[in-house]
């Protein structure tokens, strides 16, 4: 076991881990943040995507020891003070999820994408989401949701919409 520190959703954690433990497993089993899902453990499906120092990364392909000292954001860290993040709000309103298993990965990918692409085209959105697999929705409503989230962010009225 080796000591590491992880700052997850703004909270610093000191942990003892086996070097082989995947970041996803440490988030899920040690920190009980089970919103990060394991879909393939091979880096293809994107369900385990988290933000690692602000960039999307596969937590199934990252050892927790490697991530020691890093800032990590998981799906549990998207909403602030009970107010949903615009991508969360938009996924909900646009019916962009069915079983919900892939959703956290899509949300993390989309949230990061919109930070740098405030007014994306549908094809740019599809491109940005190409590393996340969904088996339920056929993606169309997800693309709708990312478009809607972009609008919410641009118009800066996420708070007005979120408080229902």
């Amino acid at each position: 076991m080796v000591p590491i520190t992880l700052t997850v959703n703004g909270v610093k954690h000191a942990l003892e881990v086996e070097p082989r433990w995947l970041l996803a497993d440490v988030l899920r089993d040690e920190l009980h943040l089970t919103g990060t899902h394991l879909g393939c453990e091979q880096g293809v499906c994107g369900a385990c995507t988290v933000l690692l120092d602000g960039r999307p990364a596969r937590s199934c392909l990252t050892l927790a020891v490697t991530a020691s000292g890093c800032e990590i954001t998981t799906v549990e860290g998207l909403a602030k003070d009970g107010v949903l993040h615009p991508v969360q709000e938009a996924f909900w309103q646009e019916h962009a999820l069915q079983c919900g298993f892939c959703t956290p990965g899509f949300l993390m990918t989309a949230a990061h994408f919109l930070e740098n692409n405030p007014n994306p085209t549908r094809s740019a959105i599809r491109e940005a989401l190409s590393g996340n697999l969904c088996r339920c929705t056929g993606y169309q409503h997800i693309v709708n949701a990312v478009e809607r989230a972009a609008t919410i962010i641009r118009e800066g009225d996420s708070h007005a919409i979120s408080q229902d």
């Binding site: 943040l33 089970t34 919103g35 990060t36 899902h37 998981t74 799906v75 549990e76 998207l78 909403a79 949903l84 969360q88 709000e89 996924f91 909900w92 999820l97 919900g100 298993f101 959703t103 956290p104 949300l107």
Partner: peptide
């Protein structure tokens, strides 16, 4: 969906 978009669904 309110729970699911926050990663609070229990599988």
């Amino acid at each position: 969906d309110r729970a699911l978009v926050q990663g609070l669904g229990q599988y």
